[in-house]
């Protein structure tokens, strides 16, 4: 317990130092920061998380059971990696005077990612069918709620 208390105390000190550094930057900087701090949580909790649930519900409704696990894995990889690519896909930081910045065809890159994920999902589901693994998972009760 003392170890945990020490760890928590250290965390409070470290966090308080960060808060102090943030306050030091002035009121205007603080309000601009708070907008982004709150915005991030709201976008995650009110947009991203429900959207994930909706996509999962849709995928469950349209996909045959044997495809659910590979599709879930594929959607996870595609969705999260796509989010990391948002700044380059939008080329928001591009500048006319600097052709060495954001100088790839990011849309083509994304389509390549989609192709790779689809190929992986396809091979995974074929593999599952060949090894008969899908039966052991889909035979369990789903507890009355749409799953996967």
């Amino acid at each position: 317990m003392t170890g945990r208390a020490a760890l928590a105390s250290l965390g409070v000190v470290v966090g308080a130092y960060g808060a102090f550094r943030l306050l030091e930057l002035g009121w205007a900087n603080l309000t601009a920061t708070l907008v982004w701090l709150a915005g991030g949580v709201i976008i995650h909790d009110a947009v991203l998380a429900p959207a994930t649930i909706a996509v999962a519900a849709l995928a469950t409704a349209v996909l045959p059971p044997r495809l659910r696990a590979p599709a879930a894995g594929g959607l996870l990889v595609l969705g999260t990696v796509t989010l990391t690519a948002v700044p380059v896909l939008g080329r928001f930081g591009a500048r006319n005077d600097n052709p060495t910045l954001l100088d790839r065809d990011y849309t083509a890159g994304w389509l390549l990612l989609v192709t790779l994920v689809l190929a992986a999902v396809g091979s995974w589901s074929v593999l599952r069918q060949l090894t008969g693994r899908s039966q052991t998972h889909t035979s369990r009760p789903a507890n009355g709620v749409e799953e996967d």
Partner: peptide, 16 residues
């Protein structure tokens, strides 16, 4: 500044 805040909150979270 928020790097310190994140790590501080993380240490508290791990402790809890």
């Amino acid at each position: 500044a928020l790097g310190w805040v994140a790590v501080g909150a993380l240490l508290v979270h791990v402790a809890v």
